[in-house]
């Protein structure tokens, strides 16, 4: 085999080793976060602070996006359904799309962009300015003090944000469908209530969003905690968070949909 071929194969090998190493490290990291679970009950204030910066500050973008998504669903849904004379099912179409797919997925993507990247940058900067090392030298476990609360805040926030997204979206669809295009108000709601299933659609969607929150929190904090502690490293880690989280959300969404809704 010639020399470039050799280098090529070796680089594949190194890539695989680094990937395995990274995955193993991320797994151990997650395990350590879970070992610090009790910090939630011992020091709830830490969680509250993070719920504020991770959850509350994301509400506005979620509500605005949810409203516009709901409105466009109302418009497009109406235009499509009216061709079959089935505009009475508009409420059902809007609600089912929102609760099953668009709510969880779009909320997760917005959360990644708004909160996930911020988490990575924050932790990465703490590492670059030796704050994490300082915590360790003060005999404070940084995973316990700064990582665990952020992780659980993310896991808790995403389902709540998803629920808000869906509710606002339904009202957005209502605004366009009922107020502007003249679908009957009662038909809008009753078709929704008849067709949307509490367990399959609503709880299924919320379970999805819980899983998304879990993975986004994990990816974002892992990227920040193990980034190269300089500006190039932090920017790389932030990009990696957004890219990896988004891909994870899309692929997990398919897997979860296949698992939950196919049976």
């Amino acid at each position: 085999m010639n020399w470039t071929g050799f280098i090529f194969v070796a680089s594949i090998g190194r890539w695989a080793i680094e990937l395995t190493h990274g995955l193993g490290r991320a797994g151990l990291f997650l395990g350590e976060v879970f070992l610090q679970f009790d910090v939630l009950f011992r020091r709830p204030r830490l969680l509250i602070q993070q719920l504020y910066s991770v959850g509350v500050l994301t509400v506005l973008i979620i509500i605005l996006s949810g409203f516009f998504v709901g409105m466009v669903l109302g418009l497009q849904g109406y235009n499509t359904l009216v061709g079959f004379g089935a505009e009475s099912s508009l409420g059902l179409a809007v609600a089912k799309l929102l609760t099953r797919e668009l709510g969880p997925v779009l909320t997760a993507l917005l959360f990644t962009g708004r909160a996930g990247s911020a988490l990575t940058a924050e932790i990465g900067l703490m590492k670059a300015t030796e704050q994490i090392a300082a915590l360790e030298m003060m005999a404070v476990n940084p995973v316990r003090r700064i990582i665990a609360s952020r992780f659980f805040a993310a896991v808790l926030s995403v389902p709540l944000l998803t629920a808000m997204f869906c509710v606002v979206g339904v009202f957005g669809g209502h605004l366009v469908g009922v107020e502007m295009l003249g679908v009957d108000n009662g038909v809008f709601w009753s078709s929704m209530q008849q067709g949307v299933d509490l367990y399959d659609d609503i709880f299924g969607g919320l379970i999805k969003s819980l899983v998304f929150g879990f993975f986004i929190g994990w990816i974002a904090l892992n990227q920040g905690y193990f980034c190269q502690p300089n500006s190039a490293g932090i920017s790389r880690a932030t990009t990696a968070t957004v890219v990896t989280s988004s891909l994870a959300v899309f692929s997990l969404n398919y897997c979860l949909t296949a698992l939950m809704f196919s049976a």
Partner: peptide
């Protein structure tokens, strides 16, 4: 570590 104190080059104050 509780018996050690350390001063970092970048001060490492919690911002």
């Amino acid at each position: 570590r509780r018996k050690m104190g350390m001063l970092f080059q970048s001060s490492a104050l919690l911002t």
